[in-house]
Design a protein around this nucleic acid. Structure first.
Lengths: 226, 226
DNA sequence: GTCTATATCTGGATAGAC
DNA sequence: GTCTATCCAGATATAGAC
């Protein structure tokens, strides 16, 4: 599966993404007109992601954010009631979309070889589309409230378990050899994450996301071959 | 090579580490008596690492640090002249020790198989000993000054190149097959880093550092086998 | 060398005009 | 719904006693 095919399949348009963001946080957001709210949530979130990913969320001041988003500080507080709430909303939206897309892309697939491949593609392509969100989540998780931290850890383990289960299945079907599936799954996750954590490196070397996916799939298939 | 053997070989005692820290920053540090300075640098650095790794360096206030280190705020400023200088000193010390140990452990080794193994052991064991430093470096790099950020990237590329070179050598000697050594080296780095970035996970599952090293070595050797 | 007290400023957050 | 002006808590950093 190449990247463009995936993009069409999941159709995570900016508008859809932020419409959902708005719907999910309707109660907290003071602005009631959807078109206005969505338009500004885009500006606010993108500014937050840009500034945080550059120098860290807690180093980003509300004045910084106000300038970058093109909204006054006062207006910002119509969309969230504290910096903590803002970081939490962004984190949650990122986790919501990620979970849904991954589950969607894999339901109905049974063959472990194929499912493994699809899982790797889905993770990588998704992280490519949502790069700033994923990077933000990874780097800022430790700054979140305990409750949200816990959910982030659950997501890490949930996505890892997708791989553990596939490998387990493949072992039972005797198409994969007997390996420590937890270590293999952890290894896959680490490599998937490196793609969005060290994007500068892969960009510098002109490694495409398809090439990276291909490499990882080959590696894992080779390791699992009986 | 097991972990204990490594620990003895490199002998990074806390005292040595911080004596060097003091020597390297003599000009900036107002306190002149080595024993006093070293004792307090230990307290300051360990407190900084603990607090930063928990909630981020920029979220750590000087009052927090003062409490955790058991020194007054005024006293802290005898050891550095600003928060930025503190983060920079810590980062530099971490990079200095890491570079030296890795180079030391590998000079004189020629056989690519053996060198590859040793490089993996050295990286992992070192990150185990200096866990808090490595975690700090990874997470805080983007908050450093441009100059220090550049050096951190250089170190990433330098340590990666250790692996690229080994693989290159092995390919020439026809003991490794023809692979994209940049991708393999990047993959190794990602897995090495995951060990200290997700320690909670490996601890939870009782994975020992030796076991993790063994896994990674097997994976790479299998992938490189002609 | 270390402390307490304090100067100074920046940050998050809000009130109220428009 | 958005802006400007402002409050004040808490931040970094320093001065000066001990």
């Amino acid at each position: 599966m190449n990247f463009d095919v995936f993009k069409n399949r999941v159709s995570i348009s900016k508008e859809n993404m932020y419409r959902e963001f708005f719907q999910e946080n309707r109660n907290r957001i003071k602005i009631k007109k959807a078109p206005v709210a969505v338009k500004n949530l885009i500006k606010i979130s993108e500014a937050t992601l840009a500034l945080s990913n550059k120098k860290g969320f807690s180093a980003m001041s509300m004045r910084d954010l106000s300038t970058e988003a093109g909204l006054s500080v006062g207006a910002l507080y119509s969309y969230f009631s504290s910096k903590d709430e803002l970081i939490e909303m962004i984190q949650q939206q990122s986790m919501r979309v990620a979970t849904r897309v991954l589950v969607d892309q894999l339901t109905g697939i049974d063959d472990p070889h194929f499912k493994l491949k699809q899982a790797i593609y889905a993770h990588l392509y998704l992280s490519e589309i949502m790069h700033t969100w994923f990077y933000f989540s990874y780097m800022e998780t430790k700054n979140l409230t305990k409750k949200v931290q816990k959910r982030a850890i659950e997501l890490e383990l949930f996505t890892e378990k997708i791989f553990t289960d596939i490998i387990e299945q493949g072992k039972q079907d005797r198409i994969f050899r007997d390996v420590n599936e937890e270590l293999v799954a952890a290894m896959i996750k680490a490599i998937l994450q490196d793609w969005y954590l060290k994007r500068w490196k892969y960009e510098m070397r002109n490694v495409s996301v398809e090439q990276y996916a291909r490499f990882l799939i080959d590696l894992v298939e080779l390791y699992l071959k009986p």
